[in-house]
Design a protein around this nucleic acid. Structure first.
Length: 441
RNA sequence: GGGGGCGUAGCUCAGCUGGUUAGAGCGCCACACUGUCACUGUGGAGGUCGAGGGUCCGAGUCCCUUCGUCCCCGCCA
């Protein structure tokens, strides 16, 4: 909009008449004086209109919350003592000389937007998602999310990873694990990718180091606060590793960098949630078997079936917080039977793997490890799980002609923000979440 | 897929062992107010108590069915 000044810039224009545009958060009508809190993408400011403003004063009578307006006014310092302590509106205000409604709501809003903290049920929040997101505190989630994405990409590029984008429509659904969504693809079936795993590995066989930020689709009917059917994975894969500790080193450095950037760029957004950055200490690495012992000895919890459950992860999260002051923990050496066929078994004990999960505040946010890079070994691993290598022909081509030792990870981007801000549900960390019941908005 | 909770005003909720005309806060509308800042004050509108069936003299409340929603487990990120 020509001639429009962002609200954040207004303090530099004291004594000048400027034009701002934005949404009306609050209207406070004192009979003669009318105060309007105006917000735009840069911030909020108070505007005041006096009866002497004539037509502008008349127009202000009709202004209501969430009207989209353009305001011309004189930037003034707040009258002495008039500024309430702790006000987020700054030390200046606009004395309105002209006001124009650009767009007015056709009907009453379903709930009040301008409160510091929206108190809505999850389905109300998501049914009216776009409107709810006008709330500053909710917007903060996605400002932080955006910083996380840019920091992740920046750190990966700095470490010489090449960013790639791989297909989400795929022709075969044989990777195993979670269920696939099926879609019609001309005269045949296609599937939505449940992970970029195969393409990442192909990527390292070309570029040595690759990363991808992309949607992942899981057709599982889960009803939890930490699952959705479409999420954004932060994946990476690197070649020529000596062992899988290098993968954890790389992930740890990346995580640390991402949080540091969020702290630098988004301090005010974090403050809205009272969120503290994780302590900058080395991330402890525990073998899964050690974690099982700790759970038994310190928490009296018996683990069956090898892998620890969600409650166990929360307990281990508490344990490492107390013992090491860490918000994170790597759990390593998962049983071979519990990991996908491409996971590298440990040389000294093939019943476990060179793999890890990364737990953040008791929630699994990443999974990774070293992959099998030897063609024969990989073919055998497929066979040993009762699958047919012929079904993996194009994938196996990556290894058939030589491939360096490599490994990587998949990070759940929304889970990071969920745990950082203490959000009750991962769905709050997704603009338009997809779950078993929800396909819109 | 297994289990549990909740559906009462636009929103968030209270309604005890069934008992006259179903409540609160916020929002909305009107009026008053020249320094508020989630303004305040006064007044007002707004509800087939998710839906269907049943028990009972009487059902928001008890029973059954059904729909919606949230959560836990599993799976995972």
């Amino acid at each position: 909009m020509k001639g429009r000044l962002l609200i954040a810039e207004t303090p530099r224009h004291i004594g000048e008449t400027v034009t701002i545009a934005g949404w009306v958060s609050v209207r406070r009508d004192h009979g003669k004086l009318i105060f309007l809190d105006i917000r735009d993408r840069s911030g909020s400011v108070q505007a005041i209109v006096l009866p002497s403003a004539g037509p502008a004063y008349e127009a202000a009578q009709e202004i209501r919350s969430e009207h989209v307006v353009a305001i011309e006014g004189l930037v003034k310092e707040r009258p002495g003592g008039a500024e309430k302590a702790g006000s987020a509106l700054g030390g200046i205000e606009l004395e309105i000389s002209a006001i124009r409604t650009i767009s007015a709501p056709a009907e009453t809003l379903p709930f009040e937007i301008s409160v510091p903290e929206l108190d809505l049920n999850l389905d109300t929040l998501l049914d009216h998602r776009t409107i709810a997101l006008r709330n500053a505190r909710l917007q903060a989630i996605f400002r932080i999310y955006s910083t996380m994405l840019s920091a992740y990409a920046a750190r990966m590029r700095a470490a010489d990873f090449l960013e790639i984008k791989t297909p989400k429509l795929v022709g075969s659904a044989t990777e195993g694990g979670a269920n696939f969504f099926t879609v019609n693809y001309f005269d045949r079936k296609a599937y939505l990718a449940q992970s970029p795993q195969f393409y990442k590995q192909a990527g390292i066989s070309i570029f040595e180091r690759v990363f991808e930020v992309g949607s992942v689709f899981r057709a599982e009917p889960h009803f939890t606060t930490r699952h959705v059917n479409e999420y954004v994975g932060l994946d990476a894969e690197l070649g020529f590793i000596s062992d899988f500790s290098e993968v954890m080193d790389e992930l740890e450095a990346t995580i640390k960098y991402v949080f540091a950037e969020i702290g630098k760029e988004r301090a005010s957004e974090l403050a809205l949630y009272g969120a503290a950055l994780p302590a900058d200490v080395p991330i402890p690495r525990l073998r899964l078997s050690e974690a099982v012992d700790i759970l038994r000895e310190s928490y009296g919890k018996e683990i069956e079936g090898g892998d620890i459950d969600a409650e166990g992860e929360r307990m281990i999260g508490e344990y490492v917080k107390e013992k090491f002051g860490s918000d994170f923990v790597f759990l390593t050496h998962y049983p071979t039977a519990l990991r996908p066929f491409y996971t590298m078994p440990s040389a000294d004990d093939p019943s476990v793997t060179e793999s890890f999960d990364l737990i953040y505040r008791g929630l699994e946010i990443a999974s990774g490890g070293q992959r099998i890079h030897d063609y024969a070994q990989l073919s055998e691993s497929i066979r040993s799980r009762g699958m047919n290598p012929d079904d993996f022909a194009s994938y196996l081509d990556v290894f058939r002609y030589g491939c360096p030792p490599h490994g990587g990870w998949g990070l759940g981007s929304e889970r990071i923000v969920q745990k950082l801000l203490g959000l009750g549900s991962i769905k709050e960390a997704i603009l338009y979440p997809r779950d078993v019941k929800r396909l819109s908005p």
